[in-house]
Design a protein around this nucleic acid. Structure first.
Length: 1136
RNA sequence: GCCGGAGUGGCGGAAUGGUAUACGCGAUCGACUCAAAAUCGAUUGAGGCAACUCGUGAGGGUUCGAGUCCCUCCUCCGGCACCA
């Protein structure tokens, strides 16, 4: 017999399989179902490491198994070859990223071949291939044309080390000794916040569907939950709080309409009536010749329409806004406020040219305008079809303010009603809350330091009586990042003196604060504070000494003991007081033990009489029940609660609205008790730590905690109180009614839009041309791909511009729309864009007309199983789900979800149980292990190390690898035992093995499947013989796990076909039946012995034999029951 | 703090509510060898001479019977976190 020479065997078969194109997968095979098994394609970092083996070679077992089970399996691979890891390494190695990457790909292709995986290499894709990224660009442009890709000037995360912006998902919050820091997901460097104009993708539009569509997916719960947490949907309501400024001053609103408009449009009539409802005056001149306007006529008409003074709010819409700028320039005295709605100060319209472009003078004196207005608001909708973000920013810069973002019901604020316009004209604060039920308890509002109303109020300088103080606070907050603000949980804030809001439910005037515990980017950047029912608001209210009125009361329904509610009997309502009374000297509390009833021990308590004050009632009850005269009220404890119980003395159910009060006796002065009272109960003094266990009151836990540690806000379930007509409603009921009466339903998300532009060379160029006249314009399809130019200097500049910006020949181009001079976008796309659709390309990898033909996609999509790393749960997996949905909405793919099943892979640690890293010196080089022990050993060891269908982390155990190698050696040597005749004694274990290996491997429990193969080999070695057909069956079972050795041993038998082309063997249940079974004999469930019995024996016989066997033990014991589970156990249950 | 997942020999791990620790590693002893490695054979949860007792993070519960189901708690891992 030859030696087991793994190197020779493995090379031989790898070549044979490649030559025969054995794993080239047809699109369809008659009579076979398609199965699409996907693994995340690797970065071509240069070398395959153990993690790659674990990611590719282990799922390969499933691919091979399914193939033998008659499925047409596609198991593709490619390279995610753009991006920072490759680029940084290229820079380090002083090579061009493309050269470096292509060399790596070539090397890694060879390494992949050495794994013995059944990848279909004819479908290989690479994201750096222009034939691939042409379609990345094309898809991006489809999104751009649909408004899903847009540019936005916002604070972004900038990694100073990688010199590029990062998406929110690519920022990792880490805890350090100095608090939490935001770090770069790739390099670990701390990120900084920068204000920059970046390309965003509107993933937030899909937030709901990304959450809801998770429900039916057959995915592990932890992956779904992580995504839900990341998206962070909150359901609640938006509620508007009108403001009163100063002495409720009334203003004169002068409204200038736009091009082709007039004052009798519904939106202007609506706006006018809304403003007049609030008592303001509205002047709305009709500007002449709206279809062919002239600057002079419009400005003159506007100026002559009325007088302008410090009470005037000048509002201009669209071209009216331009007119308004000109009007203000010419004023002598300053006006109160200038508001532009959909305004602009240059001619760069997003959609088309307009006839007034030439007749207007596009020159403005920003300084003069600023000096003639006390405050300015530039209202802009990012979805405006005509006005770009850049245009709005230009206008805002001219006027020295920030753009205020609003949402129009119809693009360019052209709807019949535009609530956002009204909101920014008539002072209103909009809040988002998940607890609209607590609206009556909203006793103040808190605005984020960045809230536009704060900025607006500060512009005026006179609106806020404490303007300087507020300005100081806002400036201080602006210097801090989100994380820095969170460093101290201590609440800070400043009251906005001179402004009040009106609680729309209670009608009460409530104060406003600015505080940095409210985040500007979440919800509306403003909250209604309900201190009684929110931890943070409670803390703030305590610090600022604000009232904390309770609006939700817990309901306690007594179900145990003598005072349990008697269901079905009427419930009498009453107000009641419970007095906690402390001894005048000792730390003891006054308790009452009722004499006529069992086990009722309470504090002093009783009903509140009509018109009686709660504290008075408490004092009265103390006097009546205990005789003590001098109780001093200290404070109320916890919340008012509804307690439902059976009142034994009054013989009826009572629903008490219970107030808890804390008193301290000033001295022991005491009136003698009446005989009547004395007969009912006795007084007991209990020490502090005894009270809790002594009393029988249900709510004592809640109350006592708050007595000892101070009151806490109540956030649990209950019933509304102090809420007018809403009293008595449950929280859920009140949420609905309150929202309907005072607000609108609203969902808010933690998810933010996906920033996709990167300031690096090695990526897909964003296929956009910037034109001074036309704005950002899509590169036409016939000019795609926009190729990444080969450049000399590809190092990142670090100044927020990609290296492409230095390549004149790339930058300078003509506008595809107007043919004028234009500049190319120089940022590149996040590589997560490349990987958002690669699995579609595998279905039709060589198509030059489409990214993938529809019918070809449908052969394979959706993906049957996608295996990858847990770190991609809220990155690649989320992005690609979004991307697929967006393609789905464009009719470009057939499914809303790309992955039928997703599973996360475990992590292989170094032998020391630590993450493998060069610095730790614990890196296992798979190439070296393969050279020594063979690819089959490495594959099989990785599969054996732990269950593949669960997430864990497994240390690489060098001895364990040797163990698997031993198994293969023994398998090799077992050849010598092969004989013609079948070995009957192996049939049972062989068929059990067929069953278990097939079932376990299908579920990706490769570890137990391999264990069963070992069980069989152990049995075979004991027999020292095996029939040829049985041997062949064994080789088929081994084939998915150790494909080379199985193929070699198979070929030794003279078969010309591949073992991998065989059908998976079938098991015969009849052969798996054991003749005899060991039966456990138990007494009261404890095993007292075992007995071997024929499988077919009757229950009675089992009992007879078992009784015989443990006769001694059963002596003197009375057996009450006997439970027999044939083939497993017999249990004698004794009377105890 | 909220949400998810997991705690089983010396180690990786295995167990449709039915004899806990399959399989592998390690360890101990033996065979082969001058010796070692490799290989083969045997033993291996703890305590006890033994009969036996105790054992799946802790404590309760359901059940004839619980690693498995229910409740409370602890620890570890992952996601989110001043998110209204």
């Amino acid at each position: 017999m030859k030696q087991y020479d793994h190197t020779k065997i493995e090379k031989k078969w790898q070549k044979a399989w490649a030559d025969a194109e054995q794993y080239k997968t047809p699109d369809q095979v008659k009579g076979k179902d398609n199965f699409y098994l996907l693994v995340e394609f690797p970065y071509p970092s240069g070398n395959l490491h153990v993690g790659h083996w674990y990611a590719f070679a282990v799922p390969d077992m499933l691919a091979r198994l399914h193939r033998m089970n008659g499925k047409n399996v596609m198991y593709p691979i490619g390279f995610d070859a753009f991006g920072l890891p490759a680029e940084n390494a290229a820079i380090k190695n002083k090579l061009n990223p493309r050269t470096w990457t292509e060399q790596n790909i070539a090397h890694m292709k060879n390494q992949i071949a050495s794994m013995g995986t059944s990848f279909d290499l004819s479908r290989m894709v690479s994201t750096i291939d222009p034939a691939y990224y042409k379609w990345t660009q094309w898809q991006f442009l489809q999104f751009f044309k649909k408004g899903l890709a847009y540019q936005k000037d916002t604070p972004v995360n900038w990694c100073p080390n990688d010199k590029t912006v990062l998406a929110n998902e690519q920022v990792v919050t880490r805890s350090t000794s100095s608090g939490q820091v935001a770090t770069c997901e790739r390099c670990g460097h701390e990120v900084v916040q920068k204000q920059m104009l970046q390309w965003n993708i509107k993933i937030t539009d899909y937030a709901d569907r990304l959450v809801d569509d998770l429900d039916p997916l057959d995915w592990p719960n932890e992956i779904k939950e992580s995504q839900r947490n990341w998206i962070g949907r909150s359901e609640g309501a938006e509620i508007d709080f009108p403001l009163e400024i100063g002495d409720n001053k009334k203003y004169k609103y002068v409204i200038l309409h736009g091009f082709q408009s007039s004052p009798d449009r519904p939106r202007w009539l609506w706006l006018k009536s809304e403003l007049e409802k609030s008592g303001h005056e509205v002047v709305m001149p009709s500007l002449p010749n709206p279809d062919d306007p002239s600057e002079q006529e419009w400005v003159e008409t506007a100026i002559n329409a009325t007088t302008y003074d410090e009470n005037t709010v000048l509002v201009g819409h669209s071209l009216g806004a331009v007119t308004a700028l000109k009007v203000v320039e010419r004023l002598k005295k300053p006006i109160f406020r200038l508001v532009t709605v959909g305004g602009f100060a240059n001619r760069e319209f997003k959609d088309k040219k307009r006839p007034f472009e030439e007749t207007w003078k596009w020159e403005f004196d920003g300084e003069k305008i600023r000096s003639k207005t006390k405050a300015i608001t530039v209202l802009h909708d990012p979805k405006d079809h005509a006005i770009s973000d850049a245009q709005a920013k230009k206008l805002a810069d001219l006027l020295g303010v920030a753009v205020t973002t609003g949402t129009s019901t119809k693009s360019h604020f052209a709807g019949d009603k535009e609530p956002d316009v009204l909101m920014w004209l008539r002072p209103t604060i909009r809040v988002f809350t998940t607890r609209p039920d607590t609206l009556f308890g909203a006793t103040y509002l808190v605005l984020a330091p960045e809230h536009p109303w704060v900025a607006l109020a500060l512009q005026h300088k006179t609106v806020l009586k404490n303007n300087d103080e507020v300005q100081k606070y806002v400036d201080k907050a602006n210097k801090k990042t989100d994380l820095e603000r969170q460093e101290s949980k201590e609440k800070t804030g400043v009251k906005l003196e001179g402004i009040e809001a009106i609680n729309p439910a209670s009608g009460e005037k409530i104060p406003l604060f600015v505080a940095d515990y409210v985040l500007s980017h979440y919800g509306t950047g403003a909250i209604m504070a309900v201190p009684a029912h929110d931890e943070r608001d409670f803390e703030f209210a305590q610090k600022f000494d604000l009232p904390i009125p309770q609006v939700v009361a817990p309901v306690i329904h007594v179900t145990k003991g003598g005072d349990a509610v008697r269901e079905g009997e009427p419930m009498k309502k009453r107000d009641a007081v419970m007095a906690i009374v402390k001894h005048w000297e000792k730390d003891e509390y006054l308790c009452i033990e009722w004499k006529e009833f069992d086990e009722i021990r309470t504090f002093i308590s009783g009903g509140i009489e009509e018109g009686e004050d709660v504290v008075e009632a408490g004092k009265r009850e103390i006097a009546e029940e205990s005789g003590y005269k001098n109780a001093k009220f200290i404070r109320s404890v916890g919340q008012v609660q509804f307690v439902e119980f059976y009142h034994q003395a009054k013989k009826g159910n009572v629903r008490a609205k219970m107030h808890y009060l804390y008193f301290e006796l000033e001295n022991g002065e005491q009136e003698p008790l009446s005989a009547e009272e004395d007969a009912k109960h006795s007084i007991v003094w209990k020490k502090r730590d005894e009270v809790r266990s002594f009393l029988t009151i249900n709510e004592i836990g809640l109350i006592w905690d708050q007595l000892e540690h101070g009151n806490r806000p109540y956030v649990g379930a209950g019933e509304l109180i102090n809420s007018g007509e809403f009293d008595g409603l449950s929280i859920e009921g009140a949420k609905k009614k309150m929202t309907a009466a005072f607000g609108r339903e609203k969902k808010t998300y933690r998810l933010r839009d996906w920033i996709v532009s990167r300031q690096r060379y090695w990526g897909v160029p964003i296929p956009i041309v910037h034109c001074d006249n036309c704005g950002p314009v899509a590169v036409p399809d016939d000019q795609l791909p926009v190729r990444l130019p080969d450049v000399e200097d590809y190092l990142p500049s670090g100044e927020g511009k990609s290296p492409l910006a230095k390549v004149d020949s790339f930058v300078h181009t003509t506008c595809p729309k107007c043919g004028g001079e234009a500049k190319r976008e120089t940022d590149t796309l996040d590589t997560f864009v490349d990987s958002s659709w690669y699995f579609l390309r595998y279905t039709d990898p060589h198509n030059s007309e489409q990214f993938a033909e529809n019918s070809k996609q449908k052969n394979w999509m959706p993906i049957d199983l996608y295996s990858g790393g847990a770190e991609h749960t809220t990155m690649h997996v989320l992005y690609s789900r979004f991307w697929h949905k967006a393609l789905f909405d464009l009719g470009l793919v057939a499914d809303a979800e790309p992955y039928t099943r997703r599973m996360n892979r475990s992590i292989i640690l170094g032998p020391d149980g630590q993450k493998m890293s060069k610095s730790r010196g614990n890196v296992i080089d798979p190439d070296a292990v393969v050279a020594q022990l063979g690819a089959d050993t490495v594959r099989m060891y990785l599969a054996f190390i732990g269950p593949y269908n669960e997430v864990g982390s497994y240390p690489w155990n060098p001895d364990g690898v040797v163990g698997v190698r031993r198994f293969l050696e023994r398998l090799w040597k077992a050849q010598q035992y092969v004989q013609k005749e079948e070995v009957a004694s192996l049939q049972n274990v062989l068929h059990k093995t067929i069953k278990k290996v097939g079932e376990d491997a299908t579920q990706m429990k490769f570890n137990t499947a391999i264990a069963q193969l070992m069980v069989f080999l152990n049995a075979l070695e004991k027999e020292k013989k095996i029939g040829e057909s049985q041997w062949k069956t064994l080789l088929m079972l081994v084939a998915p796990f150790a494909p080379h050795i199985a193929e070699e041993l198979w070929s030794e038998l003279g078969d010309q076909t591949s073992v991998h082309a065989q059908s998976w063997p079938e098991f015969d249940p009849k052969l798996m039946v054991d003749d005899e079974k060991e039966v456990a004999i138990q007494i009261d469930g404890k095993t007292r012995g075992t007995i071997v019995l024929p499988t077919a024996v009757s229950k009675d016989e089992i009992e007879k034999q078992a009784r015989l066997k443990i006769e001694v033990r059963l002596k003197g014991v009375k057996v009450a029951r006997v439970i027999v589970v044939p083939g497993r156990l017999i249990n004698f249950v004794t009377t105890r």
